[in-house]
């Protein structure tokens, strides 16, 4: 069940969220995620790890870049990089 996102663009968007059945393990340079259903291991770099962590259904897609930059305390990554990262997470079946 997707949560309603805290989205400044409207407040009613459904935020991206990690799919069920993932074993998430934190390591120093990101996340190691095991997809039980597909029997696949994914290695996420720090940026992808933060994007994935923010995909809990409560954050709208438009808010993610700002939240990621806030997490790192820098001006990077760009909106486009976050969007690309999110697209990859979706393509890998980690985020719906």
């Amino acid at each position: 069940m997707a949560a309603m996102a805290d989205d400044p663009d409207g407040g009613t968007a459904t935020g991206p969220r990690g799919i069920d059945g993932l074993e998430v393990n934190e390591v120093d340079d990101g996340l190691v995620i095991y997809d039980v259903e597909r029997d696949r291991v994914h290695y996420l770099n720090p940026t992808a790890g933060v994007v994935f962590a923010l995909c809990d259904g409560t954050h709208g897609e438009a808010t993610l870049p700002g939240l990621v930059r806030q997490a790192f305390g820098t001006d990077e990554p760009s909106d486009g990089e976050v969007a690309e990262c999110l697209a990859k997470l979706r393509a890998e079946g980690l985020v719906a």
Partner: peptide, 17 residues
């Protein structure tokens, strides 16, 4: 395999690699 991944991750958690 989930246990293998978890324990492999735990070996390196907080450890210089």
């Amino acid at each position: 395999r989930a246990v293998v991944v978890r324990q492999a991750s735990a070996v390196v958690a907080g450890v210089p690699t």
